[in-house]
């Protein structure tokens, strides 16, 4: 079902999706804060039509020209802001250098959750991340037809691993649903969109933006590389958080699996996906670097938001989670 609107843009888009009113005007799109709740939710709704859609929305609206025009107006603002705000790097290696070093005294969300995260914070984290992990690897699959040779073969191999290597019970989105069950969360697709803050929507909209546009294939590859490079050590910390809080075996397994899988994926993505893409199309190097920088920028914004809320003893969600029976071992 469609989530609740958060302002004029998302209200107009949800109304249009129900067939009950006009799309937002160009002036409304231009007036909304670019990383704000309203614009990011409106963009999220447009993108979701390309994944699994909504029960109460006609599927054919995915290719509705007027809706695509509104989406494009929001995307232009989003992309311009990202290009402005993401740090610039001279080379792909320069962009990757910062994430290939492990901080001794890290202060990120995974460090916080490992050291002092409480079960309620892990549940909030999982509810937020479910917007991506229940469609894990899907935004990146769109890049496959836009690659060739070595880059395509390597990208397909990593995606195959993400999709469980041909086994439905090992699809990473399935492992994620099992983690949610351990944490007493509802695994229904889209269940926590209403609870997700704009900073989280930005991180998912970023992948959809890069994934849906062939012109941004370099940035999509940069995004994927960043996820794979940062995932392994981060997953180790989150696995420790799950163990320490007694979250449950499936919750531990999801992150344990990612420690090992993503240590491999990182190597394959750097060597053959980035390496192969830049061999074919060296002019895309600045886009790959931008994809890395934009991913780090948006993840840092989300991390700052979560740590500010949790540090202040507040929920990071827009709607509190119901008290659910937690895993009993």
């Amino acid at each position: 079902m469609l989530p609740a609107p958060r302002g004029p843009l998302s209200r107009a888009v949800t109304t249009y999706l129900r067939g009950a009113g006009p799309l937002p005007s160009e002036a409304e799109v231009a007036a909304a804060p670019v990383y704000g709740e309203d614009l990011q939710l409106a963009l999220y709704l447009c993108y979701e039509l390309h994944y699994r859609g909504f029960a109460d929305v006609a599927p054919a609206l995915e290719w509705d020209p007027d809706l695509l025009r509104t989406r494009a107006a929001m995307e232009r603002r989003f992309l311009a802001a990202l290009r402005e705000d993401a740090p610039r790097h001279d080379s792909v290696d320069g962009a990757l250098a910062g994430i290939l070093v492990e901080p001794v005294d890290g202060t990120g969300v995974s460090h916080f959750l490992r050291d002092k995260g409480e079960l309620w914070q892990l549940r909030e984290y999982a509810a937020l991340r479910s917007l991506y992990h229940l469609k894990e690897a899907d935004p990146h699959a769109w890049v496959l037809p836009r690659l060739r040779g070595r880059a395509k073969a390597a990208m397909a191999a990593v995606e195959f691993d993400e999709y469980g290597g041909g086994r439905a019970d090992r699809v990473h989105a399935r492992l994620w649903a099992d983690l949610m069950t351990d944490l007493g969360l509802d695994t229904t697709y889209g269940r926590y969109v209403d609870a997700a803050c704009a900073e989280l929507l930005v991180t998912v909209n970023l992948m959809s933006l890069f994934g849906l546009h062939r012109t941004l294939r370099g940035a999509l590859v940069g995004h994927f590389a960043t996820v794979e490079i940062t995932s392994s050590p981060g997953s180790r910390r989150l696995a420790e958080a799950m163990r320490r809080t007694g979250a449950g075996p499936a919750a531990e397994h999801f992150y344990d699996e990612h420690v090992e899988a993503d240590a491999v994926h990182e190597q394959v993505v750097r060597k053959d996906v980035i390496g192969g893409l830049l061999e074919d199309e060296p002019e895309l190097a600045p886009d790959v670097a931008f994809g890395v920088a934009a991913t780090v920028f948006t993840e840092d914004r989300l991390g700052d938001r979560l740590l500010a809320d949790w540090g202040g003893g507040r929920s990071a969600l827009r709607a509190p989670l119901s008290q659910a029976a937690t895993h009993v071992s």
Binding site: V101, G165, A263, V264
Partner: peptide
Amino acid sequence: DRFQVALCTCRRSRRYPWCDTSHRDRA
């Protein structure tokens, strides 16, 4: 049975013999 396997060569991995990225520089 992964399509590609990363074997630890720095001997720092906590999941030895599999790589867990412990070879990375620390700063």
